[in-house]
Design a protein around this nucleic acid. Structure first.
Lengths: 195, 195
DNA sequence: CCATGAAAATCTTTCGCCATTTTTCATCGG
DNA sequence: CCGATGAAAAATGGCGAAAGATTTTCATGG
């Protein structure tokens, strides 16, 4: 299905299947093909084909899909691995960016796609950054700090975690702050996936 | 239920509930209470109570349980966090050790317990160590290298991954080697849990 | 060639029923 | 008195059928 002839590869568009990701995103939000297709003004059959990499959406449609799912387009636009590595290896330099939903928090995907029972995110918390509004999700999450220190609140309880420490969150309201001088970097596991 | 009076806390025994872990281990292996109870020569009711932290097994029984489940006793014996941190924070120094199943591979648990849909392991691959026999599990796994470099084979394909790179394994046979001079350290996510 | 929309196929949900597993609890023995 | 047992009660899990919803296929028309 991949059209890899002429000069096509050179452009910044993903040339690899991405339909499965779209399907995961849609399912994770409990939407049906017809709901999304309606929103998009396209037919159900077409969207089904897009999710199975039989049809290809236009860039503008991809943008609207990102919008519908509440994810940044960068999630789709990022370059993917090639050859054998495809779907198996995610190089540090080739991670897909996730929007800076909270200022000072830079996230990127360690998972090659969104089709697993969990997803893994690489998170960098900038010095001085913080999130005051607690996030609360119906998920189980576990983060390990690999660099720096971070303050986290689970409900009312505050903890300071440093390199090598892990925190597990199960549906509790979570907020965080990095009042320290250096960035805090974490590997963040979320199940089920929220992206 | 926890008997926290007199001098009890001082001993090296876990004073916190652990029954849920035993239950997870048993369920993960598809065993029933009566199968395990029979093996142990105890009643079903008693084992049910142990798994709900109503009854307490003796050390010798714990040893036999570890044996039945094929896990090292260190999984039970390790000190756990205290107070608010209990079940939420796992400090680097307080991780539960997992046996060195493969020589040169040191693993410890980042998850506070075994009751989630996934488990997260901190793995150190010693220089020169390798696993020749492929492991193949009916799981989805994702590992990110946080230190050093590691060679991995997914089926016939070999990859070298370094700090910041991630590899995803979905049921394929996996083997690895660290032919480099420094240890490779990874955060390893496995779903569903195998411990 | 590609998208549409209707038909076909697949998947999901629900339910009743039965078997198994787990929990509860009165009783027994140390 | 305490904790373990084993039987009764409760809860859970599996299966098959039926209904409903969703997804895929494909003939047709733009």
């Amino acid at each position: 299905m991949a059209k890899d002839f002429h000069g096509w590869e050179a452009v910044a568009v993903r040339t690899v299947p991405q339909g499965a990701d779209l399907r995961s995103l849609r399912k994770a939000r409990g939407l049906t093909l017809s709901e999304v297709a309606g929103e998009l003004g396209r037919s159900v059959g077409w969207l089904s084909q897009v999710e199975r990499d039989i049809s290809v959406p236009e860039a503008s449609e991809l943008r609207r899909l990102a919008d519908i799912f509440g994810v940044p387009v960068s999630l789709f636009a990022a370059p993917a691995a090639r050859g054998e590595e495809q779907g198996r290896i995610v190089r540090a330099a080739a991670r897909r960016a996730i929007g800076e939903r909270t200022p000072g928090l830079i996230e990127s995907l360690l998972s090659p796609d969104l089709t697993d029972a969990f997803e893994v995110i690489h998170s960098t918390f900038q010095p001085g950054a913080s999130r005051h509004e607690p996030v609360q999700r119906p998920t189980a999450e576990l983060a390990m700090i690999i660099e720096g220190r971070l303050d986290v609140w689970l409900g009312p309880d505050k903890f300071t975690i440093a390199r090598g420490d892990a925190v597990r969150v199960r549906g509790e309201p979570l907020r965080w702050a990095n009042p320290y001088k250096s960035p805090a970097v974490a590997v963040w596991v979320i199940s089920p996936p929220v992206y």
